[in-house]
């Protein structure tokens, strides 16, 4: 490759990356492979803005979930996974932190609501403390449960049935309960992996409103299959294709004026 071509590539890369000051998360040249030489995520560079919703879009199998899971190292559940590059939370390299500490700072919500089936609503919210053996006074516990459930607008619906099993709730309520569980530790970042794909439109709208409300206090990274959801609630959008971060920009800019032809093709429904 000639120096001119190198320089051109450099310019192109920089062009794609939006300028974010004091990012919460900084992903630097991140590549992840499930098997040797089969990369699911390729050389991703991105900074994540504080108190904003960043959406990761792309067709199935583009590596968006893998990228999200890498942020709190849930991707390490797969054996033989190879991770190259760096992810910084402020100035700490998360790949060097203990996963236990890291995951308390970066919470996660999954595609399907997954409250612990043996626990009550109350215990589900406090599960992070309980399972980690962190002792709290009763008043403190009550406060955390109420605050977390109020945060997800579930308090009024369940305050009289806190001791009922979490699995008795409807799907949408369960998903909000799972968000409350992630919020109980007051993390800095919340990762959501297609959180509404198993929900009906009404429950989806509630969760979306909730996320917009929550970004005042938290930094949210959201993987979504649903372009209109990204357009509705996100401030920044990433478009991934075949493991590459094709485009990363303010959502408004990306949806009105995509720079890459692949992004345009995806947004206009030509593929994906």
């Amino acid at each position: 490759m000639t120096t001119v071509a190198m320089a051109e590539k450099q310019v192109k890369m920089e062009e794609r990356i939006v300028d974010i000051k004091n990012p919460v998360l900084s992903i630097q040249d991140l590549s992840i492979a499930y098997n040797k030489d089969k990369y699911a995520v390729k050389h991703v560079n991105a900074d994540i803005k504080k108190n904003a919703i960043t959406a990761i879009m792309g067709p199935s199998g583009c590596g968006k979930s893998t990228l999200l899971r890498a942020i709190n190292r849930m991707h390490e559940l797969y054996p033989d996974i190879v991770t190259e590059g760096k992810i910084n939370l402020h100035d700490d390299d998360i790949l060097k932190m203990s996963t236990i500490k890291l995951r308390r700072k970066i919470g996660m919500v999954f595609q399907r609501p997954n409250p612990f089936p043996t626990m009550s609503i109350y215990d589900n919210v406090i599960a992070g403390y309980k399972l980690n053996g962190i002792k709290l006074k009763r008043a403190e516990r009550d406060e955390i449960v109420e605050r977390s459930l109020r945060n997800v607008a579930l308090w009024d619906e369940v305050k009289d049935s806190l001791m009922k099993k979490g699995t008795f709730l409807s799907g949408g309520q369960q998903q909000r309960l799972c968000i409350a569980r992630a919020l109980a530790f007051q993390p800095e970042v919340i990762l959501l992996d297609e959180p509404t794909s198993a929900l009906d439109p009404v429950a989806t709208a509630k969760v979306e409103d909730l996320l917009v409300e929550l970004k005042k206090d938290y930094t949210i990274v959201l993987v979504t299959h649903n372009m209109s959801q990204a357009a509705r609630i996100s401030d920044y959008s990433m478009f991934m294709y075949l493991g590459e971060l094709v485009e990363y920009d303010k959502t408004k800019v990306m949806f009105t004026n995509p720079r890459d032809s692949r992004t345009e093709g995806y947004l206009t429904g030509k593929f994906g």
Partner: peptide, 29 residues
């Protein structure tokens, strides 16, 4: 037991042996 239950515990930063003892065994009791 669905893996999502296990993931829920891991995402809360719970050490793996505690997930077995306090999540998986009670769920499969």
């Amino acid at each position: 037991i669905p893996t999502s239950i296990k993931e829920a515990g891991l995402a809360l930063g719970v050490p793996y042996y505690k997930i077995i003892l306090r999540v998986l065994i009670p769920t499969g009791f």
